[in-house]
Nucleic acid binder design. Structure first.
Length: 255
DNA sequence: ATGTCGTGTTTGACACGA
């Protein structure tokens, strides 16, 4: 069973990339972020033709999340319960007995800004909710664009901005791990300087000037099932790519 | 190096978010 996350930065623009990638990689579950389209514009039929069901929560221009799956997605939850938020950042569903939470975490813009305060309070609300979800669903995957590079090795050495690498953000990431989750990528030996996002500017991708901010966290009962986890840079090399590359975890599980 | 994208509107130029 392969579970993937990909910030597509406009599903409308990236649909051809996505369909090609689904055909090539055949993931069982795909969490998408930054759809940037309203629900009525979601490409339900194109994805169904590719063999995927979809649940989604979108809005005009910004944000928007979806879970694609070969099997049915059950018990769909949109947004963090109890959190007033117009920004469509969270969708959760149960697929084949695994609770999948797909998140487009707040960017935060700059440490100390109003948006940063929103990021930190949003992270606190998410953490409290995921704690409850874990009690209901021991087999849980929390994945998406976290907009946090957890450790120094997850940021290019020349990264100077504080946002995405600040201590409060990293502490919030560790608080999620402390719920009993593990960063699937770090369960395995990995090459150095593996990132999942590169700014469109400054020829960042060519220079590998990136951050590892897209993550797949898995709960303890799933640990024995984890086979591998990797970043797939192939779609980032195409014409008109998303600024993010997909991340995939493979679980030993029959679907 | 206010650099590139995607989307939207106050639309063929600029604002915003990332």
């Amino acid at each position: 069973m392969k579970i993937a996350t990909w910030n597509v930065n406009s599903l409308k623009v990236r649909l051809p990339h996505l369909l090609d990638w689904l055909a090539a990689e055949s993931p069982d579950v795909v969490c998408l972020q930054e759809l940037k389209l309203e629900d009525k514009a979601f490409p339900v039929e194109e994805l169904a033709a590719a063999g995927y069901k979809a649940v989604f929560s979108g809005q005009k221009t910004y944000n928007g999340v979806a879970i694609l799956s070969k099997l049915d997605a059950r018990d769909v939850q949109i947004g963090i319960p109890g959190l007033e938020d117009e920004q469509r950042r969270i969708i959760a569903a149960t697929v084949d007995g695994v609770r999948v939470i797909c998140g487009y975490f707040v960017n935060g813009q700059a440490v100390g800004s109003e948006k940063f305060a929103y990021k930190m309070s949003w992270l606190a609300a998410l953490t409290a909710w995921v704690r409850e979800e874990l009690q209901q669903h021991p087999q849980l995957v929390l994945t998406g664009d976290f907009n946090i590079a957890p450790e120094a090795r997850d940021a290019h050495p020349d990264w100077k901005d504080e946002i995405h690498v600040s201590e409060p953000e990293r502490a919030a990431f560790r608080a999620l791990l402390a719920l009993g989750l593990s960063d699937a990528f770090r369960l395995f030996e990995q090459p150095e300087k593996i990132y999942s996002w590169w700014d469109y500017r400054m020829m960042a991708f060519r220079r590998n000037f990136g951050l590892r901010i897209d993550h797949i966290l898995i709960s303890a009962p799933l640990l024995p099932q984890a086979l591998r986890c990797w970043v797939d840079k192939a779609p980032r090399k195409l014409e008109r790519p998303s600024d993010h590359a997909p991340v995939i975890v493979e679980l030993k599980r029959t679907v």
